[in-house]
Simulated scan of single mutants.
Amino acid sequence: MRYILPLLLLASPAVAADLATGDAIRAAISGNTVSGSMSASGAYGEFYAADGTIRAADYTGTWAVKGDKMCFTYGQDPENCWSVAITGSHVVWMSETGEEGHGSIKPGNPGGW
């Protein structure tokens, strides 16, 4: 058990260091689709249009980069903002408590939404 704590402490700074800047988030996500899964809501696939709209198979919303976070609004729900770790085409959505979901970036709008 005494070896677990040092490993966790070493892992935490690496995650924080891997978080994308606002410019990097915008460059990777704008005009592309992300498909994956969120811990709270399950599978998703969303196209993030350059005009700030989100289009999916059966819903819409809006997105914006604020500081170094990506923020989402769906219908009347309050805005939610996430830090983002991006490695190649892989995205990890992070809250203050850790990973909340993940996905893969696909160029353009292959779903035709």
Rank of each mutant, 00 (worst) to 15 (best):
M1Q: 02
Y3I: 04
Y3V: 07
Y3N: 04
Y3H: 03
I4T: 08
L5W: 12
P6S: 07
P6N: 08
P6M: 09
P6A: 03
L7F: 08
L7R: 03
A11T: 10
A11C: 11
A11W: 04
S12M: 11
P13A: 01
P13S: 04
A14D: 01
A14V: 15
V15H: 08
V15Q: 09
V15L: 15
A16V: 04
A16L: 14
A17W: 01
L19R: 12
L19S: 00
L19Y: 04
A20N: 09
A20T: 07
G22P: 13
G22V: 02
D23V: 11
A24L: 03
R26Y: 09
A27Y: 07
A27S: 15
A28N: 13
I29H: 05
I29A: 06
S30I: 00
G31W: 02
G31K: 05
N32C: 05
T33G: 03
T33E: 09
V34T: 08
V34Q: 09
S35M: 05
G36E: 12
S37Y: 12
M38R: 13
S39H: 11
S39T: 13
S39E: 14
S39G: 06
A40Q: 13
S41W: 10
Y44Q: 06
G45Y: 00
G45H: 06
Y48H: 14
A49M: 05
A50S: 14
D51L: 04
D51G: 08
D51Y: 05
D51N: 15
T53Q: 14
R55I: 01
R55Q: 08
A56Q: 04
A56R: 03
A57Y: 07
Y59I: 00
T60N: 15
T60G: 12
G61Y: 06
T62V: 12
W63D: 12
A64W: 04
V65S: 03
V65E: 09
G67C: 11
G67E: 13
G67A: 10
D68Y: 11
D68Q: 06
D68S: 14
K69D: 07
M70Y: 10
M70T: 13
Y74E: 12
Q76K: 09
Q76M: 01
P78A: 14
N80E: 14
N80I: 10
C81V: 11
C81E: 10
W82P: 00
S83C: 02
S83Q: 13
V84Q: 05
T87D: 11
S89H: 12
V91N: 06
V92L: 11
V92F: 11
W93Q: 09
W93R: 08
W93C: 04
M94Y: 10
E96A: 14
E96T: 14
G98I: 07
E99M: 07
E99I: 12
E100S: 13
E100G: 07
G101N: 10
G101D: 05
H102I: 00
G103Y: 11
G103D: 07
P107V: 06
P107C: 00
G108Q: 04
G108W: 09
G108H: 08
N109D: 15
N109E: 01
P110W: 00
P110D: 01
G111Q: 08
G112N: 09
W113I: 00
W113Y: 12
